[in-house]
Design a protein around this nucleic acid. Structure first.
Lengths: 348, 348
DNA sequence: TTGTACGCGTTATCAC
DNA sequence: GTGATAACGCGTACAA
């Protein structure tokens, strides 16, 4: 009949008081067998779902969520994450949610560890982090588990079974998406280059997963593709842009270039001069990539939606704390294919 | 200093009672000039945001939202919408939200009008509809406005300035997305066919917007593309599939086919026999389209995410009623490009 | 072992 | 005009 029964309703139906019903529901004991039976009889018939609103109204506990993420000044890829945090703070300002940012330099493991230590010292209820550095992140996860702090990751993965919530993209599959796009563009035979362009290689596992998926596609379809892998890293004293140009100079002709990081723009900058007929597929809607996408120097971008990742991670944690919603252990977001015509809507 | 001031806080600061503060905030009058000034002085200094939790706890009003949408048996495209409704009902069951479905046959204006009349007769607080039939939908919108019912649309648009909330895709732009994809696949010169395949042509304006965007792209880029438009409609007594096959038989060779509806699968079924080298780009992740996508008979699909459309429409309306969040008059969702490798994540 | 009373913030009603 | 008070549903402290 009724939609939502309250504790009061149940108490009346069972002929006992609210307090007794509460004790039965929360299994606090101190209930006579008779009362227990009466209440359970009612609970069997109806479905009781406690009202989450009333619950959180009374709850004046403040939940502290720490978030460890890279500095957006160092890499604009992370900028949308900060917007998501701001949005969440506003949306949940009345629910007693505090978010504490631990910002680290994306090239420095020390900076990561320091930020983590600072943040954990305040004993938050949960830590959400970008586990850029494998070993260090594993250590943080273990520390959190030991301290009873919920631990969540986004954007990257570490193989730590105790992680409570993982949100990210299927990187292997995103490599396959890029492969399929090249396959559509180039047909059954071509020469491709996979480029891991990263100033510091902190994204090693990230990049390798994408490469694996990329190669897997062509292997599985048994296509006559030649695929060469190149690692491009900043050399001290030489500007990164110069390193890229030198690399392109020395590269044999290829039909397509797959850049596994957000640095496709560094390549696109010189593509017209050295490989005017090659297609570039890269990752991430950062401003510089969009510029070259619009100039048709980048064919496609794959969007990892960091904003959505943070937003989902945080709402999931918050609803766990406030409303006892279970944490979704692992959540894989769509792999968005971006071209000149559809990118604006993805920027919000 | 403080994050969230309560009415009680304000009352203490102003030296009046909660009741008076409430009357000032809600402009109910019956407040002396002196008290008014004292309260306003406090309100100027601090920012008062009423606690939505307490508000909705007290609020025992039930909000009725009617949703007019096509039968999913007639067209599986609408199936995800029903999932979204179920999800919303669960999520907001404690907030006094009732959703009343008015299901109509997608080929029958009478069925639409009948469902609308039934639903409006119950005087809901809002009507959310798919305005498949222009005139009839306009009429419904006007009736709602007259009756003080909030009116929202999704998936399609009507030019009725009184609509309170519109959610959908930029159809013109989605035509451009398809055009760009063909441009990437085929280079600077090709022959394309635009196919409006629809059993009843109830989507006329929908299809034309896509066609306009499609042509606009090539015109703007001044590319040497030949584009022919074909309307394919069910003829009485002849199976639709047969009509499609006859059409393909009579069609001169083309490099690509752009299907502006979700019926690309009808074409894909015969593509190997008649146009083995042509690319098909169509709309919507319905099961039959996915089948041919996987067989590489459809090159790309454009996803309109009807589930997300319904979900966003409903949450927007609900948050308007419960938390006084303003209605976003018009919201345009991303245009998702789908291939064999990324479709699973979009199906949830 | 049980029932009652209180507080969370907002709103509405009711005496004064 | 104004301030006190009840009610929403839950959790819990406390008295019986």
């Amino acid at each position: 009949m009724k939609e939502n029964y309250t504790i009061k309703d149940i108490a009346e139906l069972a002929g006992v008081s609210k307090g007794t019903v509460d004790r039965v529901i929360h299994k606090r004991g101190k209930v006579s067998p008779k009362a227990l039976e009466q209440v359970n009889k009612v609970l069997d018939k109806i479905e009781y779902k406690p009202n989450p609103i009333a619950k959180s109204l009374k709850n004046n506990k403040i939940y502290n969520i720490a978030i460890l993420l890279p500095d957006a000044d160092a890499d604009p890829y992370w900028l949308p994450c900060y917007e998501a945090i701001k949005q969440i703070e506003q949306e949940f300002s009345h629910f007693g949610i505090k978010i504490n940012k631990g910002v680290f330099k994306p090239k420095s493991t020390k900076s990561f560890t320091k930020a983590a230590d600072l943040v954990i010292a305040e004993k938050p209820d949960a830590v959400l982090m970008v586990p850029l550095f494998y070993k260090e992140a594993e250590h943080v996860a273990k520390m959190c588990v030991a301290a009873g702090i919920k631990i969540a990751t986004f954007n990257n993965y570490i193989k730590e079974p105790q992680i409570n919530l993982e949100i990210g993209q299927d990187l292997f599959q995103s490599g396959r998406v890029a492969a399929k796009l090249f396959n559509m563009l180039l047909g059954n035979k071509a020469t491709l280059a996979v480029l891991h362009i990263d100033e510091a290689f902190q994204n090693a596992s990230h990049m390798q997963e994408k490469e694996r998926g990329f190669k897997d596609y062509f292997a599985q379809k048994e296509l006559a593709y030649t695929i060469n892998v190149h690692n491009i890293k900043k050399e001290s004293k030489i500007p990164f842009d110069q390193t890229i140009e030198n690399f392109l100079k020395s590269l044999d002709a290829v039909d397509g270039l797959f850049v596994t990081t957000s640095k496709a723009y560094l390549l696109a900058n010189h593509i017209a001069a050295y490989l005017p007929k090659s297609f570039i597929i890269g990752y991430d809607l950062v401003a510089e990539n969009i510029k070259y996408l619009e100039e048709d120097k980048i064919a496609f971008l794959i969007h990892q939606d960091p904003k959505k990742q943070v937003y989902l991670s945080l709402t999931n944690l918050i609803e766990f704390f406030l409303f006892d919603k279970p944490l979704q252990e692992s959540l894989t977001l769509p792999i968005d294919i971006i071209n000149t015509e559809n990118y604006p809507q993805y920027l919000n």
